[in-house]
Write a protein that binds this DNA or RNA. Sequence first.
DNA 1: GTTTGGATTCTCT
DNA 2: GAGAATCCAAACA
Length: 229
Amino acid sequence: MDRGPAHHPLTMVSRGRRLPRSFFARDVLEVAPDLLGCTLSHAGVTVRITETEAYAGEHGDPGSHAFRGWTPRTAPMFGIAGRTYVYFTYGMHWMLCLVTGHDGGAQAVLIRAGEVVAGQDVAATRRPGVREREWCRGPARLATTLALDGSATGRDFCVPHRPAAGEPIDLVVRPPASPPDTVRIRTGPRVGVSGPGGDGAAYPWRFWLDGESSVSPYRPGVIRQRRRS
DNA sequence: GTTTGGATTCTCT
DNA sequence: GAGAATCCAAACA
């Protein structure tokens, strides 16, 4: 398969249009790198995606939440591609995943980092005292800057949605403003995944744009010692 | 019912 | 670099 810009899937999508479900209904290992450079808009802030991670779902990926099968929390991952899976972790952080692959395959792309390209004034109010470069440097920071939490999980972002007062705010994923920069895409082990799923040789499923300052630093997964009470 | 550990971030040294 | 913060989902008895 030719992965050059001329035959890149994103060249088939009009600028400014949201990415169609067919873009997400592909294997997660194709979608994750293709999302680099795309923009994500929610609640008045637009972020250009610079780092993603692929999670292959129920079968064959021990690092995925879906590895143990369907649970109420992971239910959105088992739905159709083009929906969100927003989950809570470490007692304080929300993270955004985009569901991909065939229906029920439980594949998802974790959006790890990005660069704010619009709505800087809004972002600044959500990240007071934080330097702009750090606003979306890490999945939980990105979710905070985009005002994403559990109310956004399971939402279909492939269809236009005009929210009424009090309804969730629309989420939109659009293709890059310029042709995809496939040359700069790098791969490596996933961040913070403990156990076999964090094996970079078996699962080099983290993708980022080389040279981007917003890309989060790599940390291997660790088993934390529980605090004594 | 209890226990365990987490796809992280922030602060302090 | 080390350690703390924080609470939920899932596993287990």
